[in-house]
């Protein structure tokens, strides 16, 4: 069985580099280095990593977002604990006693406070604290803390990259480093097959805070069409397998009024022809991904969405199956190869 050792190593490197929305620098450096193998790369005004490779056929933009959800420090309180707001859609149900890294002048270990049982009223025992009642303990006094941390410092959730059974892995920031990995793996496949194609790539900033990065980078790229790769919901206890995808059962092809129906259908046809496992993901309006910004960027861009199913989205234990990333990359590569043979 293919255990995807190289793909796993790439995803681990991507997940290990941190980049909360608006402060993607560390992740941008790692992703840039990987993208440079295939095309010239630059970082734009909003922090998105962009690359351009001219060639035959339709000009296709591939997108995956670079940023990850996290927290942002708002103040240091009188006993040296850090107050914070969420930066992206953090889930406060998983924050009690959570381990974090505060990206101050240096990286600092921190623990989000947890109310001791003797202080919790019975009705509070099963409720998560509001964000403004939580704080991060960095084991310092106010004076010590203020030397190293200022408001605006980003906070990431701890937890390294771990392999689970089979080809499944868990890490923070699988959303959307799995997408970045899929795009890079797609470029590798195209190179192996010597496909002459016309591509732009963007690893966009600020998706989790509203998609500003994708809106501006896709305006700059001016492609004929775009494929965004993000993550979506995989079934688990409490998450219906009828409504959502299954882990390890293939890439998710998005169908939605806001997505280009012809592109979605072409992806489906190619997947069937090439025996690439896939699962349809049908949405009733917009998609909640960068596609929503890319579609209406500039004069408008035909857009498709591929998603890697994950469990426990927006926690430190996001779980995905490497095989789904590989299948996403394969399908994208086949699509690009086909479009490279046609006139734009």
């Amino acid at each position: 069985m293919n255990n995807f050792a190289e793909l796993s190593a790439m995803l681990e490197a991507l997940c290990s580099a941190k980049g909360v929305s608006g402060a993607e620098n560390e992740a941008a450096a790692v992703a840039s280095q990987m993208l440079e193998k295939y095309m010239p790369v630059s970082v734009d005004a909003l922090g998105s990593v962009t690359g351009r490779k001219e060639g035959r056929g339709a000009h296709i933009l591939l997108d995956a977002h670079l940023d990850q959800i996290g927290l942002i420090v708002t103040a240091v309180d009188e006993i040296g604990f850090l107050k914070f707001a969420k930066c992206g859609g953090a889930d406060r149900r998983v924050l009690a006693a959570a381990e974090v890294t505060v990206h101050g002048k240096e990286k600092l270990f921190g623990a989000v406070i947890s109310t001791p049982p003797h202080l919790a009223k019975p009705e509070e025992a099963s409720k998560a604290l509001p964000f403004d009642e939580m704080a991060i303990d960095i084991g310092m006094t106010k004076e010590e803390a203020e030397k190293l941390v200022s408001p605006g410092a980003r906070v990431t959730f701890n937890g390294g990259y771990l392999r689970l059974m089979g080809n499944r892995i868990r890490s923070p920031s699988v959303d959307d480093r799995a997408g970045v990995a899929a795009v890079l793996r797609c470029l590798e496949i195209l190179e192996e097959k010597n496909v002459d194609c016309n591509l732009s790539v963007m690893f966009s900033s600020q998706e989790e805070t509203g998609g500003s990065g994708a809106q501006t980078a896709s305006f700059a790229a001016q492609p004929d069409e775009a494929i965004a790769v993000d993550v979506s919901f995989a079934s688990a206890p409490g998450v219906s397998s009828e409504k959502y995808a299954s882990l390890g059962k293939g890439t998710m092809i998005g169908f939605a009024p806001s997505l280009d129906y012809k592109m979605s259908k072409t992806l489906e046809t190619i997947a069937n022809r090439e025996n690439i496992p896939y699962q349809p993901e049908v949405m009733g309006g917009k998609t909640g991904t960068n596609c929503d910004e890319i579609q209406v960027s500039g004069k408008g861009i035909k857009t498709a969405l591929l998603s890697v199913p994950i469990r426990n989205m927006h926690t430190a234990v996001e779980v995905c199956d490497l095989e789904d990333i590989e299948n996403t990359a394969r399908l994208m590569a086949e699509y690009i190869a086909e479009r490279s043979k046609e006139n734009a």
Partner: peptide, 30 residues
């Protein structure tokens, strides 16, 4: 890992509610 239903799929009025003990499970990737 001890899994949790993604916050995106939770009803607005349940966003601060900790799942009951019998809803909890461990995912080893099997």
């Amino acid at each position: 890992v001890i899994g949790i239903k993604p916050i995106h799929l939770v009803d607005k009025d349940k966003e601060d509610t900790i799942p009951s003990a019998d809803e909890l499970y461990i995912d080893i990737g099997a």
